[in-house]
Amino acid sequence: MLTNTPFSILDLAILRKGDDAADAYKRSLDLARHAEKWGYHRFWLAEHHNMPHVGSSSPTVLMGYIAQGTSTIRVGSGGIMLPNHSPLMVAEQIGTLATLYPERIDLGLGRAPGTDQKTAAVLRRGRMESVQEFPQDLEELQQFFSDENLDAPVRAFPAEGLTVPIYLLGSSMDSAYLAASKGLPYVFASHFAPNYFQQATSYYRNHFQASGNGARPYLIACVNVISADTDEEAHYLATSFYQMALGIIRGRSYPLPAPVEDMDQIWSMQEAAALQHMMQYTFIGSKDTIQSGLESFVHQHQIDELMITTNLYDHEKRLHSFELTAAAIQSFRTGPVQADQA
């Protein structure tokens, strides 16, 4: 069951303290090049806006940058927040990337704005879509990629006729309902939204309707992983991630800072508890510790693919963490192999 579990990367092009976006983009490309050698399956980029220390405001542009600088790794959006965009524009942009980099482009779609409500209103020019409109946008987008759109008055070039895998992203039940009914692969944001993880993924598996998109459910879980040569070093390095993540609790955006010896000097007891709950699916430790934790997680929740996100201040330490994580997953116990849908 667990052997050959695909593993991938979610990147947000996080800015370190004192850096600019150009520095973050260079580190992202360097990571993607190493990840390709270490066996990572995909390199996805998220969409976020109005966040000064998150560089991934334009995932399609960064997808082209990463794809151009690599050779084999799949590159995708994790995701494009569809209500922020015209389905026609998304089809044209993704179709262009899929034409330039055949068989390497993934399209992950989300329903959330990826920002605050005021910024979302500016992005959408005052049109705030409801939950009910997202399925309609998805159908419109799928139609633009379809050969059946040949005689439509509006067509998306060069997307029309291209096969680009579509994945639905979610952190609650809504996307689970839609992914199951559409027969699409489902990606759950368990790295920051654990509350509905078990309920949503269980519903998705049990109510999946096979379609032209897939014959069986395909579940990807995104988790935080920080690995180092020892458990002690990994927990020390993780304090950079904790400090940055405090911004979510405090409603502020923090750059990625250097690690510290004692987080109790920085967070309150209430903040620590809230952050520990939010980061419930976070794995920190040596290769052996990571292997044990991830293997148990994959087995318990019937995960088809792991999406790894790791934010460390020192770039070389971050690379080493991803290298150790790859080795840990590749050491999962043997069993029947499950094929990837991509």
Rank of each mutant, 00 (worst) to 15 (best):
His48Pro: 03
Arg205His: 07
Tyr40Gly: 12
Glu129Phe: 06
Ile166Glu: 06
Val225Gly: 12
Asp174Ser: 04
Phe322Arg: 00
Thr60Trp: 10
Gly18His: 12
Met244Ala: 03
Gln330Phe: 11
Arg205Pro: 12
Leu246Ala: 09
Ala273Met: 06
Gly212Phe: 01
Leu12Thr: 03
Pro194Ala: 01
Ala326Val: 13
Ser227Trp: 04
Lys37Leu: 07
Pro102Cys: 05
Gly39Glu: 13
Ala273Gln: 11
Ser321Thr: 07
Glu140Gly: 06
Gly212Leu: 12
Gln280Val: 08
Met63Arg: 14
Ile266Met: 00
Leu162Thr: 05
Ala22Trp: 01
Ala91Gln: 06
Ser268Phe: 11
Ser240Trp: 10
Ala176Met: 10
Gly55Leu: 13
Tyr167Asp: 08
Arg104Pro: 06
Met307Pro: 04
Ser77Ile: 02
Met278Arg: 15
Leu256Tyr: 00
Phe192His: 05
Asn50Gly: 01
Ile166Cys: 04
Gln302Glu: 15
Ile73Cys: 00
Gln93Tyr: 01
Val122Pro: 04
Leu324Gly: 09
Met128Val: 12
Pro153Asn: 02
Ser190Asp: 02
Val122Leu: 14
Gly76Arg: 05
Leu162Lys: 14
Gln280Ile: 08
Ser202Lys: 08
Ser175Asp: 13
Arg155Thr: 13
Glu92Met: 04
Gly55Glu: 15
Gln93Val: 01
Leu150Arg: 11
Met173Arg: 10
Ala156Asn: 10
Met269Leu: 15
Val260Ala: 08
Val75Asn: 08
Ile73Asp: 13
Ile290Leu: 10
Asn311Lys: 06
Gln330Trp: 10
Ala159Val: 09
Ala221Asp: 06
Ala245Asp: 02
Asp340Arg: 02
Ser253Phe: 04
Met128Glu: 09
Leu178His: 07
Pro259Ser: 02
Val298Arg: 05
Met173Val: 02
Val131Arg: 11
Ser331Trp: 11
Leu312His: 07
Ser8Val: 02
Gly285Lys: 13
Asp264Ala: 14
Gln280Cys: 07
Asn50Gln: 12
Tyr218Ile: 10
Gly64Asn: 08
Asp340Ile: 02
Met1Tyr: 11
Val131Phe: 00
Thr230His: 09
Gly214Gln: 09
Tyr254Thr: 14
Ile220Val: 15
Asp304Cys: 08
Arg250Gly: 11
Leu256Cys: 04
Arg155Glu: 00
Leu29Val: 14
Asp151Gln: 12
Leu62Arg: 15
His49Thr: 01
Ser286Gly: 10
Asn311Tyr: 12
Gly79His: 02
Asn195Pro: 04
Leu256Phe: 00
Gly183Thr: 03
Gln330Met: 13
Ile73His: 00
Gln338Trp: 05
Tyr177Glu: 05
Gly18Ile: 10
